[in-house]
Each structure stands twice: as structure tokens, then as C-alpha cells.
């Protein structure tokens, strides 16, 4: 209760939370919203483009009008509002799915390292350190390029991002597990002969919730950045599925002719990331008073 009240008193957190909630809501209701606007993300509108000038939207502000709330995409005339809203689904969907996988992997490995024997700990910790140190982007690009093109890209993206980003969670989990292990009630359970699995489930996991969730809150925007980056490099989701990173990468060739086309996906990405970071920051301040200072 106190926690909640303190959170609600934090203005930065509140702003972030509201913005984040709006984005999640937008992503969830994307088809509804586009229907409401009377548009869809794939229909071409050739009549709104100036073909002789490379297919740049006719009219000021990238073809912005009452029908096309954010204008249309150069080269295709597809409705930008619809594309951006559907792009939110990919961005958030991949980030959340990857997060769930990361937590499963990270907590599993972290607890195993913390509770396992000396050798298990040594091997798992070394693996964690390595994964943490290695620049994941390099491997992610290589991985995404060799899998057959027909595999579902969003799922693949989530898996690859998770596989390369579980180590932080594992490290924190291990540290917390080690400290929990020495607590009286856990020691008591172990002495009384409870199986390691039972100890892990009943005694350790509840204690992990706060620190792991605090950390996870920060991993989420990281995942979004990864997805956007991979899509930007062209190894992310495939067209015609819209994604912010992919839109940005096409937009880079248009920034003089149609600046709005850059600002819409770019601005949204920035605002959404900022919202989630503010949320993470607020949660940390409340749940993890040892580090009252901003982030780590």
C-alpha cells in the first residue's frame, strides 16, 4: 500500500505509466483504431502521390489530411496512422515476448547457479559473464540471416533477442539467491530436508520478485531498441508487416523530401521508450531503496 502510494506520488512515474499504458492500449486495439479512422495499413493510395517527383506525397506535411491523420507513406500512399499503430504491435509484442523468455531463462539459470553446487555455479556464471560481455547485435544479425526466410519473423525476433539478453537477469537472480540462501528461513527450510526444487519455489522465488521485476522493467525498453535496430538493418520483420525500425530505415532516404515521415516513427519510438524507462525508474526507486539513485 505504501509502495503504491509512493509510486502514485511520483510525477515522472505517473507520466511514464500513463504514456506506456496508452501505447499498450493502442497496440492491443490497433485494428479497431484503424477501422475507426477508416483506414488500413496495406491499401495503396497512388492518387495521393506525386509520381514524377519520386512518389513523394502531394500536399504539405506528407499528405496529412482529415482522412489520413498522419499523412501517407511516400512511394506507396499507405496510411501512416494505420501503419504506425500496427507497428506498435510488433514493437511491443516482440519486446514483451522476448522479456518473458528472458525472465524464464535468466531466473532459471540464476537460481540454478545460486542453489547448485560449486561446479554448476562456476560453469553457469562463466556462461553468464560471457553472454553479458559479447556484443549480441553481431550474433543476432548473423542468426537472423541464416534462418530460412519463411519462418515467422516476430517469433524469431523474440527468441533471438531473448537468447542474447538473458544474462543480466541471471546475474541479478544469482546474487539475490545467494543472499537469500543465507537468510534464516531459507536455511531452516534447507536443514529441514526440503528438496532444492521446493526451496527454490517456495522460499527463493517470492524473494526474487522485487529485484528481478525492477530489473525487468528496464530490460523491456532495451528489447524494443533491439527490435527496432534489427528491423532497421533489414533483418527484422518482413514487409508488408509494419514496424517502427523498418519505417525509420526507409524514412532515412526521405528526410529532406518528407521530414514528417521520419518524425512519426522516430518520435513515437522515442516517446514510448522514454515512457517505459520512466516507469522502470519509478519502480526501482520504490522497490529497491538501496539504490535510490537513478537507474544502474
Amino acid at each position: 500500500m505504501i509502495t503504491l502510494r509512493r509510486l502514485l506520488g511520483d510525477r515522472a512515474f505517473l507520466t511514464g505509466a500513463v504514456a506506456a499504458a496508452v501505447m499498450v492500449l493502442v497496440a492491443l486495439t490497433a485494428p479497431l483504431l484503424t477501422a475507426l479512422a477508416g483506414q488500413d495499413p496495406t491499401t495503396y493510395h497512388n492518387d495521393l502521390l506525386d509520381s514524377a517527383r519520386g512518389g513523394v506525397p502531394t500536399g504539405a506535411l506528407g499528405g496529412l489530411s482529415g482522412e489520413h491523420w498522419l499523412g501517407v507513406e511516400p512511394g506507396t500512399g499507405r496510411d501512416l496512422f494505420a501503419r504506425v499503430v500496427h507497428g506498435a504491435r510488433v514493437s511491443l509484442g516482440v519486446a514483451f515476448s522476448a522479456l518473458v523468455l528472458q525472465l524464464l531463462l535468466g531466473v532459471g539459470i540464476g537460481v540454478a547457479a545460486g542453489l547448485g553446487g560449486r561446479y554448476a555455479d562456476a560453469v553457469l556464471s562463466r556462461l553468464t559473464d560471457l553472454t553479458l560481455a559479447f556484443p549480441g547485435l553481431v550474433l543476432a544479425i548473423a542468426l537472423l540471416a541464416v534462418v530460412p526466410q519463411s519462418w515467422p519473423r516476430p517469433v524469431l525476433l523474440a527468441v533471438v533477442i531473448a537468447l542474447l539478453g538473458w544474462a543480466g537477469t541471471a546475474r541479478i537472480t544469482r546474487a539475490e539467491t545467494l543472499s537469500l540462501k543465507t537468510r534464516d528461513y531459507v536455511a531452516a527450510a534447507r536443514v529441514s530436508g526440503a528438496s532444492p526444487l521446493r526451496v527454490a519455489r517456495r522460499e527463493i522465488l517470492p524473494g526474487l520478485a522485487a529485484p528481478v521485476l525492477t530489473y525487468a522493467a528496464l530490460v523491456l525498453p532495451g528489447n524494443m531498441i533491439s527490435e527496432a535496430g534489427l528491423s532497421f538493418l533489414g533483418v527484422g520483420v518482413r514487409p508488408p508487416t509494419p514496424s517502427w525500425g523498418q519505417m525509420l530505415s526507409t524514412a532515412t532516404t526521405w528526410f529532406r523530401a518528407d521530414p514528417l515521415y521520419v518524425f512519426i516513427p522516430g518520435g513515437l519510438l522515442f516517446v514510448t521508450l522514454l515512457a517505459f524507462v520512466l516507469v522502470a525508474n519509478g519502480v526501482r526507486r520504490v522497490l529497491d531503496p538501496r539504490q535510490s539513485e537513478v537507474l544502474r
Binding site: A228, F232, L248, F255, L273, V277, N281, V294, L295
Partner: peptide, 26 residues
Amino acid sequence: VNGLVLAGYAVPVFLVGLFLLLLFCV
């Protein structure tokens, strides 16, 4: 510094890059 830190977490490098190109080169 807090702002800087937040930005560091919330901005992908290609967004910063794009912004810089837009501002200084275009």
C-alpha cells in the same frame, strides 16, 4: 545528469544519428 541517463536508455543510436544528420547535414 538524470536527463542524460534517461536519454541514454531511451534513445537508440540510430535515432540520435538520424537526428544529427538531419540537423547538421541537411
